[in-house]
Amino acid sequence: MDWYPLYNSLRIAAVSTAAVFFLGVFFAYYIARLPRLCKGVLDVVLTLPLVLPPTVVGWLLLVVLGPRHAFGAWVLDTFGTRLVMTWWSAIFATVAVSFPLMYRTARGAFESFDETLSDAGRTLGLSNTYIFWRIRMPYCRQGILAGMVLAFARALGEYGATSMVAGYTPGRTATISTTVYQLWRNNDDAGAARWVVVNIAISAAFLLTVNLLESRQRSTGEGGAA
């Protein structure tokens, strides 16, 4: 059995989770402080990829990244690189669909943060960076970890947008989900079944992790010292 799809899926999910962590935390932190109207509008825009069909997300990504469109053509001219149909093209797709999960969980976690802790830190002379990374993030860590696990699981399972942006090339852009589709199309039910089992095992393990994190959060209270 060629394990390339598993390796490819895992590295795409890992890179996209890392990207989504910073993007989600950044947007969650700054949007929570905006006036209500801006917050409402941005919230809708940023959550949209969660509810749009993946093919719509894929089409929108192609409009931006495709070599016949402005941005994609400019990158091709300048760097000689196509943004689509490479193994890492799938990262654009997985970032787009998993970002809302990270953003929303991080925002929920930040909203439960006790702002007097930040005020206390500032009156004690602690820098804003220190307060963010050493007080706010540890306080919200369980919510943020849960968001990362969800984002990772979603990235691992992404099919629609990925297949449009990265396509299916065995040994190059194949992921677990695109492989299952190809094997089924070629009537290789046994091959598809193997990948289905692998996928179910990984997803179940992740959901179990999320549940454990959430129940720990509930039993120790928000940000409780475990």
């Binding site: 005020d119 206390a120 830190g121 500032r122 009156t123 004690l124 002379g125 007080i135 940000g223």
Partner: peptide, 16 residues
């Protein structure tokens, strides 16, 4: 940070 004024909060605001 630069005011040098200590503030004792009602619930003490110790970092949990």
């Amino acid at each position: 940070q630069r005011r040098k004024i200590g503030y004792l909060f009602q619930q003490y605001a110790l970092f949990p």
